[in-house]
């Protein structure tokens, strides 16, 4: 009887037949997430600098960028890239980038990168703003160059503040990457939908959920561990990092899971 019940929720034959498919899908998910989160991270610092610039020529477009990508659903952005590219195909062909936009894989990476760059940029900006002004003033008084102030004074402190929300953003981009399935990419979610369409066995969704859950839990634990290790020197003199983040990033306050989750 127990065997029947277990079989109803978790059909092991299903895993036997389609387990490989899920693993293949997982690989695509990992590739999309890894590439777009790293590229997004590279874009985030220039974006944060532009946002903080006194020159409206830089700060206004950066603000518009961030507002657009954080204010509209990721699915809508993905459709814009994926279907929109098809509309301007002759133009894309003429500048030699059609091969890129023809492929759902690259379209997803493109859309996810632009999207996560906006979120990560705001995280970096908030973290830099959290570094007390006196730190910069003191460094200037010591005659440090702008580069050295940024590299040795501001960034080491800012990155520690940014660590937790960046981890949340990584988790959130992993979750958001499931949208790739809607534009036909066979990532973990895509393979899951494929198997469901073939077998009508609901438990495949639960298997996929367990895989996603395992990944996000693992990352969340890894981040706790990293944060404990990196902020050890702060414990005596300052409140723990999580408490430092609180006043700065209002949106992330109430709990840690949030910052990145403002996306659909």
């Amino acid at each position: 009887m127990w065997h029947d019940l277990a079989g109803f929720v978790f059909n092991l034959d299903l895993l036997n037949n389609y387990g490989m498919r899920l693993l293949q899908g997982l690989r695509i998910t990992a590739e999309v997430v890894a590439i777009s989160s790293v590229l997004g991270f590279l874009l985030s610092y220039p974006l944060a600098c532009a946002r903080m610039s006194d020159n409206p020529l830089f700060s206004a477009p950066a603000l518009a960028y961030v507002t657009f990508f954080r204010g509209t659903p990721l699915l809508c952005q993905l459709y814009l890239v994926y279907y929109g590219a098809g509309e301007v195909r002759p133009f894309l062909t003429s500048i030699g980038v059609w091969w890129f936009f023809r492929d759902a894989f690259y379209c997803c990476i493109f859309a996810f990168t632009l999207n996560t760059a906006a979120y990560q940029g705001e995280i970096i900006r908030g973290a830099i703003a959290a570094v007390p002004k006196e730190q910069v003033a003191a460094a200037q008084a010591l005659g440090l160059s702008r580069y050295r102030i940024a590299r040795h004074v501001v960034l080491p402190q800012a990155m520690l503040v940014a660590l937790r929300p960046l981890g949340n953003e990584l988790i959130s981009i992993i979750k958001a990457s499931a949208l790739a399935a809607i534009v036909t990419l066979l990532d973990l979610m895509g393979q899951t939908r494929f198997v469901f369409a073939r077998t009508f066995d609901f438990s495949i969704y639960l298997y996929a959920a367990l895989i996603y859950l395992a990944i996000t839990e693992a990352i969340s634990r890894l981040w706790n561990w990293m944060e404990r290790g990196l902020s050890r020197h702060l414990v005596v003199t300052a409140p723990p990092v999580a408490a430092v983040i609180t006043p700065v990033m209002r949106n992330t306050v109430e709990n840690r899971g949030y910052v990145g989750q403002a996306r659909a």
């Binding site: 958001a176 499931a178 949208l179 979610m189 469901f196 969704y205 996603y212 859950l213």
Partner: peptide, 19 residues
């Protein structure tokens, strides 16, 4: 909470819908 915050929203919707 852990389950529904740890899986993609899209997957959660499908699980609830098809479930």
């Amino acid at each position: 909470t852990t389950f529904f915050r740890g899986i993609p929203d899209l997957l959660a919707l499908f699980i609830v819908y098809f479930g």
